[in-house]
Design a protein around this nucleic acid. Sequence first.
RNA 1: CGGGGCGUAGCUCAGCUUGGUAGAGCGCUCGGUUUGGGACCGAGAGGUCGCAGGUUCGAAUCCUGUCGCCCCGACCA
Length: 588
Amino acid sequence: MPTRLTNYFLKTLREDPSDAEVTSHRLLVRAGYIRRQAPGIFAWLPLGLRVKAKIEAIIRDEMTAAGAHEVHFPALLPKEPYEVTGRYVDYGDGMFRLADRRGVGYVLAPTHEEVFTLLVKDLYNSYKDLPLSIYQIQDKYRDEARPRAGLLRGREFTMKDAYSFDYTDAGLDVSYQAQRDAYERIFTRLGLEYVIVKADAGAMGGSKSEEFLHPTPVGEDTFVRSAGGYAANVEAFTTLVPAALPTEALPAPTVFDSPNTPTIQSLVALANAGQPRADGREWTAADTLKNVVLAVTQLDGTRELVVVGMPGDRDADLKRAEVAFQPAEVEPANDDDFAKFPGLIKGYIGPWVEGGEKPVLGEESTTGIRYLLDPRVVTGTPWITGANEAEKHVFGLIAGRDFTADGFVEVADVRDGDPAPDGSGPIETARGMEIGHVFQLGRKYAEALGLKVLDENGKLVTVTMGSYGIGVTRILAIIAELNNDDKGLIWPKAVAPFDVYVVATGKDPAVYAAAENIVADLEASGRDVLFDDRPKVSPGVKFRDAELIGVPRIVIVGRGVADGTVEVWNRTTGDRVEVALDGVVAAL
RNA sequence: CGGGGCGUAGCUCAGCUUGGUAGAGCGCUCGGUUUGGGACCGAGAGGUCGCAGGUUCGAAUCCUGUCGCCCCGACCA
């Protein structure tokens, strides 16, 4: 049966909703696909559900092809499994927590690793049962600090989450690859451009992780890629470490007076004015060692100061710092922090002090503060840096000879032109929106929840897992974001809510009779038809609605009927052609 | 959580500076005309002006507080 507008649950809006800013949000609300319920939470109307179902069908198809089986968990779950793995705490404010009438704790699941693990533990005991891949398409809940951009970042969203279970690392590699391949097919079928980048596993834990990013300037993730094929989320980017240099024959460091030079810029200016380089080149910020003081707060509330030394032309990237120190929070040290460590002279911090028995920072330091270095600060490199006395800096301080560190850390910002760590050339940075993420979780969850099987030798082994997510509703929004014009949405055929939109115009009964025949023909040919059969609506309104709703093929039945023709309109290309009444199906 | 903007009819908004009977367009209902690009005429229905307190003879308008929403940032498997 065709869907008739005379009794469909659809109301389009003539004007843009005032609370919608981004294109996808604006058009999906205006065209009657979704309605806002609360910030980041949307009701799905019939049109929206149809598009969502189309996307889900493609995902199901490829999941089945990849050997995964569909299950379905509640969104409302007991909190205990999340306490066992630690995520009840680790997830922080991002998780919705609630209690029933008796005060028993529940969560609205932000993701389902724990309960999938427990389900498999309930049912499986033997390696013969493995490998296993199961998935669901379910709504997820995250208490986002600021939901935004309609469906693009909501507090409730639909996700396909799959989990693989293997008892060997090699098996996990195979399961992971199967999902990864399925993702490539899914995004290709959806017509979504994607880049696979190395990712940080974050709070999920685990070893290997890759993100599928849709490149777009409005994306929330920054990623890098090289012409040679390297691609990584900026948070997972690692620095190409230069070779160490010999320290013999290098002159001793020299301290010099540097009044009023608390910044790298002023230091470079002073150096060029007072201490010109022997080779005639100018000193630059990259010749200085900037020592950034960070406050690292652990989950239990412990606050630790850490000093990170990096080339002076770089800034600390707090997101990369969060990854480096996770799960702790990182922020720049404040005045109170500095007050506790009078040995740190702001603007003149350095690892070394003239005549000091022990270093100020580094191994066996007098301050005891953890000192970490950017990987570029390799043994043998000379630096201009603070001398740890007010208004004094030091020249020619040699890494590895004059100072050491407690370790190395990836905190410095990443730039266009930086070399890729795999030697594939300079990288460029770009923005992307995360549409999928695949993880090798390893044994973190199975270990915590006790998922073990007996192997071929009768020994208990802990299962190794993978977790694979696709943001269904986010994808729908991105497709809407990509496929529209000033008149409205223009769905790709693969996800359009209907195949054909038939408009009957005028009030001539012959026109409506002809339209009914065409609709019947289209339905008989297997097309889903949305039929605008509203009798008292003017043609202008009907055309506007057809354009707004964005079904890719529109058939206009009207004045041409007298001559035995109708108009077939390709919304995607804008082409409109006259065809005979009985030639509509063939013309599509 | 920091910064900015906004809460008036179902929707989009005006009115607030300078206090004095609550408005427009669209949408909706009824009658009539109209039907290939958001038609027209006539008659209607519809609002505790976010909420609370205060000032005042009188508050949508002024003051205080509070709640909510949107945007930017922080945050974001």
